[in-house]
Design a protein around this nucleic acid. Structure first.
Lengths: 188, 188
DNA sequence: ACATGATTGTACCAATCGGTAAACATTTTA
DNA sequence: TAAAATGTTTACCGATTGGTACAATCATGT
């Protein structure tokens, strides 16, 4: 039962943190080796495709976390209002009150963005669809849903960058509060 | 009068494009050499501090462009309402209707962000201050100004990332329109 | 106890990284 | 027109990059 050696899933969380902090190009193999405590041998055993496969694995992991914890509840939550509130709470906690960047955003803003365009596209498109659907059940008119969803999702991404740049993590919470209010005031 | 050889300002625009497209770490000297048409010798003649000084020069250039074309009009525009409208128009054009990323955001989301934290901080703080001031003259209450300014500036950043990730440049325009409306509906 | 597969450490690779040196060409100024 | 700036070319540097090969080690079911 107890395994002294590492297993692939164990590494992914650390990999995510390295990519988040240093970007795709900035995350060198030696840095990854250092932070994970795994030598190149182990790394290439788990990820034969190298750095690209490592990033792909991390992005897949994140995508499925959001699918389970954010998108799914938005689509099937008891009441849409609480589902939306839950989304904001989960987002605030996931991004550590504005102290943690979104790896999807980090990759999107990097030179490696075209290498992972499929993952990026699916992540944002799924989020937009799920949120728009919840907004629809909340009574937001068809014509408004998608645009409001885009405003909210983009707003979250931007608030993370803003908070980091200003060195004011609290700015993230302030924006989040406003975006949540948008979702609750039916019109506009 | 006519100069065959290059001058420092000529290079900066090209450098900006390279950093924007490939990020700080992704913009290798050989790539910069290729895109600018300048050899390492010329590059290091203009920027003795190397890559870091190149990026610093580009960020300074961008900062002063925004200072002149966005922040200053916000502070001293005839009427605050048109100053704000002008800001949105200038932003839409500067970011090529969502097809161009913000280099400040790109750097902020990269591993090199702490190397340029001063520039990033000033850029976003200045923008926030200038916009909040214009919103104040527009009648937005003191308590609202800063938060709304943060929502707008963050919203712009996020919309750029969203538009690129979705492969839908138009999403940027949609968000911009909504943010502009926020600035004009006095309350909330 | 032993074979087996999963995991890891070490040494190595060519290519590229950012950066330097200095001879060379071109303009500008005096 | 000569000297002094200014700009350019080329060759080179050590360090680091992502990646490979493979023998050694480990945990485990039989």
């Amino acid at each position: 039962m107890s395994r002294v050696v590492a297993e692939r899933p164990d590494v992914i969380a650390t990999l995510a943190e390295v990519f988040r902090e240093h970007g795709y190009d900035g995350a060198s193999l030696s840095l990854i080796t250092e932070k994970t405590g795994l030598g190149k041998g182990s790394l290439y055993h788990f990820f034969p495709g190298g750095k690209e496969e490592m990033a792909e694995a991390v992005l897949g992991d994140i995508a499925s976390w959001f699918q389970t914890n954010i998108f799914e509840p938005l689509r099937n939550g008891e009441t849409p209002a609480t589902a939306i509130d839950d989304m904001f709470a989960a987002v605030d906690s996931y991004f550590r009150q504005g102290r943690r960047l979104c790896l999807m955003g980090v990759i999107a803003a990097s030179g490696a963005h075209d290498r992972f365009s499929v993952d990026l596209n699916r992540y944002f498109a799924d989020w937009r669809t799920a949120l728009a659907e919840a907004l629809g059940r909340r009574g937001i008119p068809e014509s408004e849903r998608q645009a409001l969803a885009e405003e909210v999702i983009g707003g979250i991404q931007g608030a993370l960058i803003l908070a980091r740049s200003l060195g004011e993590a609290e700015a993230f919470g302030r924006v989040l509060t406003r975006l949540k209010a948008r979702c609750h005031s039916s019109q506009t």
